[in-house]
Design a protein around this nucleic acid. Structure first.
Lengths: 131, 131
DNA sequence: TTGCTCCTTGGAGCGCGCTCCAGGTCAAGC
DNA sequence: GCTTGACCTGGAGCGCGCTCCAAGGAGCAA
């Protein structure tokens, strides 16, 4: 009863490519190498999937591969690293919030431009003669 | 009275590097080549700066160089491309909003994790004997 | 046995967006 | 006249994050 998903199944479920999964493992982003079936093929367990899901959350909020690895290193080191992990996450949070604010600000300006184009085009559609 | 900022001044004001400014120009992101002083040095006019400011807004909301160039191409083409420009901006807006929502969702999960670590560390600080 | 699919590894390659560099010009100051 | 510094050009290089490839193995069906 050696359970677990194949790399293709794990990739599908996580929304990653199989190449990315192997790359993450090689690059030290996982807590430990994923288990193998007798054939040598990878088998992803539920804890593997949960961890990789966190990795994708960190990645998709803009954390670099390097920093995800730093975080994984801390978790791997075990007890006593909790304060460091927390600080890393908090620092990331600050970065993400700043980035969000910046994007929202710029998007506001772009929205304004969209409004101007929209008005101009609507005026044209109604014809120059419309009051 | 040939006015305009030097490339270093423009870079400073726009928060870009001089290399990036030259790269944008070479790559067709500007509406036209920036003017030159008699010495051959670039001089950035107010309209140049306004346009590049828009470029940085598009860039920093995640628009690719390629798409900024497409937008610049449309503006350069002049009258009759307004609908296309609008559609490009609206499409970008949709992309940015989707991305913002995704990041906020992931950030929520990370916040939750921060909360867990914080609680655990606070409990530890107060000592295991605290009721 | 052949063929097919899915997996393995190590390593090369790639698209993006700059960034850096070499070699040269020009203007100003000493 | 000479040095300094800002700028010029074309092109190479780089860090990131994958992505792709070649060569090979295991399992299963016809």
């Amino acid at each position: 009863m050696t359970e677990g998903l194949t790399i293709a199944e794990a990739a599908e479920r996580l929304g990653l490519s199989t190449d990315a999964l192997r790359y993450y493992e090689r690059d030290g982003l996982l807590l430990r190498p994923v288990g193998r079936a007798a054939s040598g093929h990878r088998r992803y367990s539920a804890p593997d999937l949960r961890w990789i899901e966190l990795v994708t959350r960190l990645r998709s909020t803009g954390m670099t591969i390097r920093d995800v690895r730093r975080y994984a290193d801390l978790v791997r080191a075990g007890d006593g690293t909790e304060a460091d992990r927390l600080e890393l996450l908090r620092e990331h949070r600050r970065t993400v919030l700043a980035r969000l604010a910046e994007v929202q600000d710029h998007l506001g300006a772009i929205d304004h431009k969209i409004g101007l184009y929209t008005e101009a085009l609507e005026a044209r559609e109604q014809g120059p003669g419309a009051a």
